[in-house]
């Protein structure tokens, strides 16, 4: 069974200065499945997924102990190349942040910094990424226009396209729909279902229905601790912990 685990987190602790934000968490994330991370605001969800591609390295005063293995290799080992790690483990942020460039240049940004110069190749990648994110039909006639004129939902899909253009094998989503309306949210959720065929996906969400709809596994965090982890259906229908039940039924607080 271990072969199917893409990511294995063992005894992960994280401190921001003196303040401990993650407490001894262990979790196994299945390949080609969607894993949702839920929990109240400030419980460490973003902090946790930022550990999976070492984005926390960029935050000042962070200390991390424990192990995160991706494809059976601890990404916190000294010999790990962080730049190529982030290329394999892509991240889509809560607030869509297109670069102030054209739509084309946004999607081509990653491939370009990884050395692809051939115009035709870049065009192929951009087209495929935009098609995979269902954005192609909406923007194919204005690839040379600024990405900042897109709608919020289009921007978010553009950011997903930009991330998959570097061909990662893990996708991390940090509340990708928090700024979107139900229609745009539906599109992103369909997209995630589509993407899980090729990618291993971890998604942070505040929306219980969304977690129930899109994910196969769910982890519930509280105050930096992983309280419960299991199959989504089981966790929502039959939670083992009282605090999980309180949270998913909205009785939390």
């Amino acid at each position: 069974m271990d072969k199917e685990n893409k990511i294995e987190v063992r005894n992960l602790n994280l401190w921001y200065g003196d303040k401990q934000a993650l407490k001894n968490n262990s979790i196994k994330i299945r390949k080609n499945h969607v894993t949702a991370i839920i929990g109240p605001s400030g419980c460490g969800k973003s902090t946790f997924i930022r550990c999976l591609n070492r984005m926390n390295d960029l935050v000042e005063g962070v200390k991390i102990t424990g192990e995160v293995s991706i494809n059976n290799k601890n990404i916190y080992d000294k010999d790990v190349d962080v730049v190529s790690l982030r290329r394999r483990v892509g991240m889509v942020f809560q607030k869509p942040n297109p670069f102030p460039m054209t739509i084309f240049d946004n999607v081509a940004y990653g491939p370009r910094i990884h050395g692809i110069k051939d115009k035709k190749k870049l065009q192929e990648i951009v087209e495929k990424s935009l098609k995979d994110t269902t954005l192609w039909n909406e923007v194919s006639d204005r690839l040379d226009k600024s990405a900042l004129d897109l709608s919020g939902g289009q921007m978010q899909r553009l950011c997903i396209a930009r991330t998959i253009a570097v061909k990662p094998d893990v996708l991390l989503f940090d509340e990708p729909c928090s700024a979107l309306d139900p229609v745009a949210t539906g599109k992103i959720e369909d997209l995630i279902q589509e993407l899980k065929k090729e990618y291993t996906i971890v998604i942070v969400t505040h929306n219980m229905q969304q977690a129930a709809r899109v994910s196969d596994y769910t982890g519930y965090f509280l105050l930096g601790e992983l309280i419960e982890f299991g199959k989504t259906k089981q966790l929502f229908e039959n939670p083992k912990e009282k605090s999980t039940e309180d949270y998913i039924t909205g009785r939390f607080g």
Binding site: N53, L58, V83, S84, F93, N97, I113, R162, T163
Partner: peptide
């Protein structure tokens, strides 16, 4: 220059110099 744009660039696997030069 916004911190989040720089984060996005690093998130795509850009090095520090690439981020400075391109963003």
């Amino acid at each position: 220059v916004s911190f989040s744009e720089k984060m996005e660039s690093y998130g795509l696997g850009a090095t520090k110099l690439q981020t400075i030069k391109n963003i």
